Amino acid sequence: MLAVRWYLRYALSYRDIEELLAERGLLVDHVTVHRWVQRFTPLLIDAARPCRRISGDRWFVDETYAKVSGRWVYLYRAVDQFGQVIDVLASEHRDLAAARRFFTRALSHGRRPVEVTTDQAASYPRVLDELLPAARHVDARRANNRVESDHSQLKARLRPMRGLKRLRSAQTVSSGHAFVQNIRRGHYELGVDADPHLRVSAAFTELALAI
């Protein structure tokens, strides 16, 4: 749990985690750390799902990029008006099918938004008409600054990785980063009695018992 938490929380490489663990007398290969992150991150997210607070009703949706095996892929992301990351989807394509898949996933988390702000990609109006016909769609220029500025934190986390090998890894890491970000921002009923600086640590301790 310590290795996974460090990796998702800080801009560290797998080799950095290997070295930090060695300083604590724990000899673990960086490949093992990678396997831990891929294995336990989805389990932690699933275990924490009942503790997640209801999202807001105004969503800001946009795509950013990550490099996977030398190629750029898209990361669809949505945040609400309170800064909660609703969901993340890694996709090789930026098209109607990817947008539909993203919104279908995001809507499975609970509240349906009354307003959705996106960029001016042609796929969004079609998907919103299909899945959220009652929601107001905003695509004015600069209206999506909230999620665009939020991308910078994910990009800062991805930078030390120097590219990912598989789309699945991009999905796991970006979802795990969003998960930790949401804990830090108080969007889970986890670690609520802990000092804010220790909230993520306390949350992972609680979740370790659940998985």
Rank of each mutant, 00 (worst) to 15 (best):
residue 102 F to Y: 13
residue 6 W to D: 07
residue 42 P to N: 10
residue 118 T to G: 07
residue 158 L to G: 05
residue 183 I to P: 07
residue 132 L to H: 05
residue 94 R to S: 04
residue 207 L to M: 11
residue 94 R to Q: 07
residue 163 G to V: 06
residue 183 I to G: 05
residue 152 S to T: 08
residue 1 M to Y: 04
residue 42 P to C: 07
residue 144 N to R: 05
residue 106 A to V: 12
residue 144 N to D: 12
residue 127 V to E: 04
residue 21 L to S: 02
residue 84 Q to C: 13
residue 47 A to K: 13
residue 197 H to F: 05
residue 177 H to C: 10
residue 174 S to Q: 03
residue 70 G to M: 11
residue 121 A to I: 00
residue 189 E to H: 15
residue 68 V to W: 11
residue 57 D to N: 12
residue 151 H to R: 06
residue 205 T to A: 15
residue 30 H to V: 01
residue 41 T to A: 10
residue 134 A to M: 03
residue 165 K to T: 13
residue 11 A to K: 04
residue 75 L to T: 11
residue 17 I to S: 05
residue 168 R to G: 11
residue 119 D to K: 05
residue 41 T to N: 09
residue 208 A to V: 12
residue 136 R to N: 01
residue 17 I to Y: 08
residue 107 L to Y: 12
residue 211 I to T: 13
residue 73 V to C: 14
residue 44 L to Y: 15
residue 110 G to N: 10
residue 101 R to G: 14
residue 16 D to A: 13
residue 31 V to K: 15
residue 139 D to P: 00
residue 168 R to Q: 15
residue 206 E to N: 02
residue 21 L to D: 02
residue 107 L to F: 10
residue 192 V to N: 06
residue 142 R to H: 15
residue 81 Q to L: 09
residue 98 A to V: 03
residue 152 S to V: 08
residue 165 K to E: 14
residue 8 L to A: 07
residue 150 D to I: 00
residue 91 S to C: 13
residue 106 A to D: 10
residue 195 D to T: 01
residue 98 A to T: 03
residue 71 R to A: 13
residue 20 L to Q: 11
residue 201 S to I: 03
residue 156 A to G: 00
residue 125 P to E: 05
residue 78 A to E: 08
residue 79 V to F: 10
residue 142 R to C: 08
residue 91 S to T: 09
residue 133 P to Y: 08
residue 204 F to P: 03
residue 165 K to V: 06
residue 45 I to T: 06
residue 27 L to T: 12
residue 196 P to A: 07
residue 63 E to V: 14
residue 164 L to D: 04
residue 82 F to P: 00
residue 54 I to F: 02
residue 132 L to S: 05
residue 109 H to F: 15
residue 39 R to W: 12
residue 196 P to S: 03
residue 27 L to P: 00
residue 171 Q to V: 07
residue 178 A to R: 06
residue 52 R to P: 01
residue 145 N to T: 13
residue 39 R to I: 00
residue 94 R to T: 01
residue 105 R to T: 00
residue 27 L to C: 04
residue 126 R to L: 15
residue 114 V to W: 02
residue 148 E to K: 10
residue 131 L to K: 08
residue 169 S to W: 04
residue 85 V to S: 14
residue 171 Q to M: 12
residue 34 H to G: 04
residue 131 L to G: 06
residue 56 G to S: 10
residue 4 V to F: 02
residue 10 Y to N: 12
residue 140 A to R: 15
residue 135 A to H: 06
residue 115 E to Q: 15
residue 46 D to I: 01
